[in-house]
Every structure is written in structure tokens, then in C-alpha cells.
């Protein structure tokens, strides 16, 4: 994916408008950071971009070369993680990754899945069921879910909210690597994460 164009995006919840007429373009290699108070629509914006939520108005266009990419095709290239993203608690970390690789049609050997778990800091815990993970470990598994298919569009919602110092280092590595293969959108209020921004958007809606 070479770019994403958001055009006149508005998001309403009932009679309450949380975002009005957001227009922005993000190019490959860049990082967009979205900040704003609680309820300002940061998470909703990411859900709109990945197609989990329809905007009340406006459109999202994915562009490869100079061609628009169909939403269904673009979805295959999106990696999304958020605190409210849940994986299967009764499966192990490795089984979760195997399942999501299979449904995406990816033939990834177990050694690669284990390497991905190691990369996100879950070395040696792949055989444990997710129900036994701490909140930080669960968050690290969300990284693995989002990075599993090497997405060209990476959407990170509160990416370090449950992580320790080494988790922040993981985030820095992930963002740096993503710059080489695609684009990233981060929803956060953490000043350390705002430093990644090539494009910074402050949403004005309030809680």
C-alpha cells in the first residue's frame, strides 16, 4: 500500500458527532499519530480505517501505485491492534497465531510463528493458553496478531498502554521496521509515542 486517503470522515454516535470532516493523506513510510481526549474518536477512526466500523460520512481510499485498492483486498494488508482486541483465551499463543495464519491463507511454519512470538517478547510462552497470560503478555500477543501477515498498513491503538519499558522498545522497533514496508497510524495520548509522528492530528471532541 502506498497511501491512504481519508476524505471528509465524520463519525456520529446517535445524535453526538465525535469527529467532523477529517481529511488527510498518509504516504508510505510515514507515521500518523492521532491524539485527543477520551471519547474524541481516536479508536473509532482506526476502526473506520480497518473497516470494522462504517463512518457516518466520508470515505477511506487505499492506494497502490496510482490505483485505488478495493476495500476487501486492502483489508488483507491491514494489521490492527487495540486494547479491546481479544484473542481466543482457551487456545495457546501459538495456536492463536496458527489459526489466524490459516484463515488468512498463509502457509507459515511453526518455527516462524515461534520467532514472531519471540520478537514480541513471548519467548517460551507460546504453548501456554492465553487465559494464563498477564495483561502485558496478552498485549504483546496482540502485536503478534497484527504483525503476523506483514501488513503494509499498521494501526496501533494505545500501543504501549499495558507494556513495561521493554515493551516500549518493542514498539520503537516495530514502528521503525514498518516505515520500511508501509505506513502506520497510532492512536495515543502518550508523549513518547507522539514523537513518532510525521503527521500529527489532534482531535477536538471531548469526553
Amino acid at each position: 500500500m502506498d497511501a491512504i486517503e481519508l476524505t471528509q470522515i465524520s463519525i456520529d454516535y446517535g445524535a453526538r458527532r465525535v469527529m467532523a470532516n477529517l481529511t488527510v493523506r498518509l504516504n508510505r513510510g510515514n507515521v500518523m499519530v492521532v491524539t485527543g481526549q477520551n471519547g474524541s474518536g481516536k479508536s473509532s477512526l482506526l476502526r473506520v480505517v480497518c473497516g470494522l466500523q462504517r463512518p457516518s460520512a466520508g470515505q477511506v481510499r487505499f492506494i497502490a501505485g496510482d490505483q485505488a485498492v478495493a476495500p476487501a483486498e486492502a483489508r488483507q494488508q491491514i494489521g490492527w491492534m487495540a486494547p479491546d482486541l481479544m484473542l481466543y483465551r482457551e487456545l495457546t499463543g501459538l495456536e492463536n497465531l496458527r489459526f489466524f495464519a490459516d484463515v488468512r491463507g498463509l502457509a507459515i511454519p511453526d518455527t516462524e510463528l515461534s520467532a514472531l512470538l519471540e520478537r514480541v517478547g513471548l519467548y517460551g510462552r507460546g504453548a501456554d493458553v492465553v487465559a494464563t497470560y498477564s495483561s502485558g503478555m496478552t498485549h504483546r500477543l496482540r502485536y503478534a496478531y497484527a504483525l503476523l501477515h506483514r501488513p503494509t498498513v499498521l494501526l496501533l491503538d494505545e500501543p504501549s498502554v499495558m507494556l513495561d519499558q521493554r515493551g516500549h522498545e518493542l514498539l520503537e522497533t516495530v514502528v521503525a521496521q514498518q516505515r520500511t514496508i508501509g505506513l502506520t497510524i497510532i492512536a495515543t495520548n502518550d508523549p513518547r509515542e507522539q514523537r513518532f509522528a510525521d503527521v500529527l492530528i489532534r482531535l477536538e471532541g471531548s469526553a
Binding site: L52, R75, L85, M86, Y88, F100, V103, Y145
Partner: peptide, 16 residues
Amino acid sequence: EQRTAAALRLAAPPHA
């Protein structure tokens, strides 16, 4: 209920 639907929606083809 377990909020795994979003992860599945994003990854899996609806027919599957």
C-alpha cells in the same frame, strides 16, 4: 461476548 469477533472479522473471509 468474548470480543474475539473483531479479530476474526479482520482476518477471515466471511464465507469461511
